[in-house]
């Protein structure tokens, strides 16, 4: 039998490490769009990590948070993109 729980947690750890790596792009830029892009990737990673944790720890309620986060991630990316194009046009 393959230790699924360990694998899922290991994958989660790898995803966090990749998130730290992507953080370099968020800090470095050079443009705002680069940063937003990096945050978007980070957000997708977060959603996946949450899903992995939900499966590994067997807490399905984490999936609800993941759902909220998936939507928020999108909202933030679009809002900032729109903001940088026409200042004040966020809403």
């Amino acid at each position: 039998m393959i230790p699924t729980t360990g694998l899922l947690l290991g994958a989660a750890a790898v995803f966090v490490v990749l998130a730290i790596a992507v953080l370099y792009r968020a800090v470095r830029g050079p443009t705002t769009q680069d940063r937003v892009l990096a945050i978007n990737v980070l957000g997708t990673n977060t959603v996946v990590i949450l899903a992995l944790l939900a499966a590994a720890l067997d807490v399905p309620s984490f999936l609800d948070i993941a759902l909220v986060y998936a939507l928020l991630n999108f909202l933030v990316a679009v809002a900032i993109s729109k903001f940088t194009v026409d200042r004040g046009g966020v809403m």
Partner: peptide, 18 residues
Amino acid sequence: DVLAAIVLFGAYSLGMAL
């Protein structure tokens, strides 16, 4: 850059939530 700081703060919240 203020905008960059805002974006990074979003990433911070992301990590904290996790």
